[in-house]
Structure formats: C-alpha cells, structure tokens
C-alpha cells in the first residue's frame, strides 16, 4: 500500500497564487474526486503534483511513501509511480504511438520489454479500450480526435501501471460509449495498489467510477470534503450554496490558468 501526502501546498503561475494551502492524503485503493468551478485550481493541483515547470511550488510538501516528490524531476516522479492523464495531451509528430509507448514502458524496466510481450500487451489494451488498431502506428496524438487522445491517455495509464493516477478531465470530449469504455478501464485498475485522483465537471463520470472521497476546491483551497453525497448536491444545486457557507467563488473570467497548455501551443505556432 502506498500513500501520497500533500501538505499546505501553495502554487503560483506567473505572479498569481493559484493554490493557497492544499492538504490532501490519498492512499492506494482510494478514488478521490476533486470538484469545483472552473478557474479555482483543480488542474493546477494535478499539474503541480506531476511537476509541470509552469507551476511553481512556493510552500508546502508532497510526499510519496515518505519520498520528497518536489525534489524529483518530472520523469523521476513518473518512474516513482505517478501518472498524469492530461486534459490536453501533446502531439509529437514523427514518433509513432507504439514507439513512444514502448520507450515509456522501458523507462521503468531494468531490462527492455521483448517485442512480443509489448505487442501482446498493446493489442490486448487497445482491444479493451475499443480503440482503432491503427492508432498504434500513427504519430503520437497527431490528428487524433479529442476522444482518441483521451483514450490514448488511458491506454498509457494501463500500460504503465502507476501507483497513483491523476486524471484531468479525462471525460471531456468523450461520447457516451467512449465514456463507458474509459470508466471500465479505470475501474479495472482499481485495487489495493492503485489510487486515483479525478477532476471532472460531470457527475456522469463519477457515477461510472464512484469515488471513495470527494473534495470541493474553491479559490485554491479545499473547502469541503466528504463522500458521494457531495457530488449529488453539486449536481442538483451547482456551487451557489457554497457561497452561502461564506466562500467566494473565483469568477469565470479568471479561468486562464486552466487553459495555459493551450496558450502555450498557440505561442509556439505564432511566435516560436
């Protein structure tokens, strides 16, 4: 059993503080849902745990079974057992999906996986995720539809077998059938050696992958934690009732940080 402990985490993007002291403890076997209106820091939290350079940790700690995660580089975090399923997976032209997947698997193996074993694992998971077989031979995420990209993230999760998966809006861009397939894949991973943190706006995902813990993130702080009943309440009433408890919501206009990855892409193509 493993434990991921986040204590008093403060994170800045540019000059702006997005997370203002997050405390969260996740154990393998648990599934945590993080909810909250846009622009309140949900994606920032997941990206900061994985170590995206745009997100600067100014205070606090993250520990994985006592190891200092903040002292690790991004790739070390991955090899230590963290996985981030991204909201906007990057496209890498010229590198086939299967070459990439093999390299990623080999990155955590003493001895490289045999081609036979790799193909078997790949074929099995591609079939389970009901993916187009050709996706393995196409360039990594290039020209993939939104739904294909998300399935490809789940494919990576299944092949890399992380201890903790951080899934950032993994349901966006998925139709009903795809959502079911992806949910089944996540559920199939659920066991005592796997923990998961999910960010989503939709109750539907949480119906299919019922979380053990639910947190509401407002203005960079966890204002409430509980069980499935929180999801039902938010689904019925939205977030207005939270204001009545005395919390201010981050206004919709300031949701920029969440789509930073997108902005980065545009920057490259226009100014690069």
């Amino acid at each position: 059993m493993s434990t991921l402990v986040i204590k008093d985490l403060h994170v800045e993007v540019g000059e702006k503080e997005i997370l203002k002291g997050i405390d969260l403890t996740i154990q393998t076997g648990e599934v945590h849902a993080i909810m909250g209106p846009n622009g309140n820091g949900k994606s920032t939290l997941l990206s900061a745990i994985m170590g995206h350079p745009k997100y600067r940790v100014t205070q606090g700690s993250i520990e994985l079974d006592g190891q200092d995660v903040l002292a690790m580089s991004v790739d070390e975090r991955s090899r230590a057992g963290l996985f981030l399923g991204m909201q906007y997976p990057q496209e890498i032209p010229g590198i086939t999906n299967s070459d990439f997947l093999k390299a990623a698997m080999n990155a955590r193996l003493e001895k490289p996986i045999s081609l036979f074993q790799f193909i078997r694992a790949l074929d099995k998971n591609i079939a389970e995720l009901d993916m187009d077989e050709n996706l393995a031979h196409r360039y990594l995420n290039e020209g993939f539809s939104g739904g294909e990209k998300k399935r490809n993230e789940i494919l990576q999760m299944k092949l890399l077998q992380p201890r903790f998966a951080l899934l950032d809006e993994i349901d966006s861009g998925l139709d009903v059938d795809a959502l079911r397939v992806v949910s089944e894949a996540i559920n199939s991973m659920r066991n005592d050696h796997f923990g998961c943190v999910m960010v989503s706006h939709y109750e539907r995902l949480f119906e299919l992958v019922p979380p053990t813990h639910v947190h509401v993130l407002i203005k960079g702080q966890v204002v409430m934690s509980g069980g499935y009943e929180l999801i039902e309440k938010i689904d019925q009433e939205g977030y207005e009732w939270i204001k009545e408890l005395g919390y201010e919501l981050e206004s919709q206009e300031e949701r920029k940080p969440i789509i930073l990855e997108n902005c980065g892409r545009k920057d490259n193509s226009y100014h690069g």
């Binding site: 995206h52 991004v74 991204m86 990057q90 990155a107 690069g272």
Partner: peptide
C-alpha cells in the same frame, strides 16, 4: 516546446530521451 517535453517526461523519459524523441520525430 516545454509542454511537449513535459508530456514525454511525465511518462518516465528523461529530458535527454524526450528531446531526442522530439528531434527524431522532427
């Protein structure tokens, strides 16, 4: 791009391997 590097490194590839992969793809 920083985001491409982050993506590949978040799957366990070192910065060098990730850079190499982007260059090879290029």
């Amino acid at each position: 791009s920083e985001d491409q590097l982050f993506y590949l490194m978040s799957r366990g590839l070192t910065k060098q391997q990730a850079t190499e992969m982007i260059v090879m793809g290029f």
